[in-house]
Design a binder for these strands. Sequence first.
DNA 1: CCACGGCATTTGTCTTTACAAATTGAACCC
DNA 2: GGGTTCAATTTGTAAAGACAAATGCCGTGG
Lengths: 233, 233
Amino acid sequence: MADTPIYQLVKDALRAKIESGALLAGDMVPGEEQIAADFNCSRLTAHRALRELADEGLVVRRRRAGTQVAPRDGGGVLIRIPSVREEIEGRGFAYRYELLTRRHAAPAAVIAEALGAAQGERHLNVVGRHWADGRVFQHDTRWINLAQVPAALDVDFSEVSANHWLLENVPYTGVDHEISALAADGRAAEALEVAAGTALLRIERVSRLGDRPITHASMLHPGALFSLKSERR
Amino acid sequence: MADTPIYQLVKDALRAKIESGALLAGDMVPGEEQIAADFNCSRLTAHRALRELADEGLVVRRRRAGTQVAPRDGGGVLIRIPSVREEIEGRGFAYRYELLTRRHAAPAAVIAEALGAAQGERHLNVVGRHWADGRVFQHDTRWINLAQVPAALDVDFSEVSANHWLLENVPYTGVDHEISALAADGRAAEALEVAAGTALLRIERVSRLGDRPITHASMLHPGALFSLKSERR
DNA sequence: CCACGGCATTTGTCTTTACAAATTGAACCC
DNA sequence: GGGTTCAATTTGTAAAGACAAATGCCGTGG
């Protein structure tokens, strides 16, 4: 016997109707009272099912107007970027982090702006590489906003990667990304051990606590060798 | 007066404690009874607040063991890829779609496999370009699985982009992505109106209904000119 | 015909009450 | 000491009742 909760049964039934096309965008979904009658449950149970579907974006609810199937987003798609380590080990390679440099210096103007920091202010710069077996998988240039995370100055990042330490020790509320492709110049080619001119995938990431930037990371991948794979929904 | 619902007040209070670091990963969160007493509300209201925080991944709940702050994901980051049109118009450019070719043919082996189709089976191939003002923003090669979407054969994609038509007319349950960088070969360079060898950003997307692939899309961006920007959470 | 207002409907939140399910921790037996 | 059983605690789901808030609809009046 199915001991799946009733609200879940209701959700599944409605979801099936929507995904099968039996209910199209804009169509009215039965009201809470109606569903409660159909499934022989209380209005609260029907309400919960509809509310959760609304939270997931499948339906739109308005008082008095009732519930209708949400218009297909048309908009975007959510993808998940796994952590480097997860990505590498998921492909069956051995993971290794190598610290290249760690210095206390003033970042370039672009970076300073991204960090919301004053020009010339000194912050922490950590540069490292993530290896997949014998090949460089990612080159990681990170600036840590010392105004937000002064404790980072006391950390030696030779053992822990900056990414890892930050995740463990610094709370954040949001992350902004920018993904682009570029051709490797001399320095990048050397760092990644590829030929100059190779196409690289670059991910720039600013993590924030509220609206205060915590870190700026610039991650480079040899794009011809590896690719980021993301999952559904 | 604040007419924000009580469960929301509870959520905000706990979220604040977690994000400020007052509660660290692994720390116990007060139980439902305790919260109900603290906020002078019913257990169900406290339950709803905790349940929603658990749905959002901030806390972990186990019967008898109680509720504790979830370990920081460490894992991945969710980003949102906006639709091409949204992306272009969001930057203030005029959007235009141009159909290049539309043919009924057998895809290459790799594509056929991604579509879950038999070798040599004919499907619908739609190739087009998305323009931002006078420049090519994206080149889009799409294969539509006719076993799943036979109706696509009757559509002339000169007016509507394939992406748009599919979103409007075909339900899907999941999308898989792969993002990579590559250097433009002759044909790609011509299609995107860039110099050969320019670094390109490529997004490959397979959309599914259940586990049956609907479409395979290969999207190329001139990476030096444009980049994808994603939003928080 | 149009503008305004009130009414009825539908969703949103909350309380109280109840029982089920999971799991920890302790008592218990061997 | 080690494994097993049992009970208490905590979360999960549900019902019924109640009132609040939003808003589409219709009727009224101009």
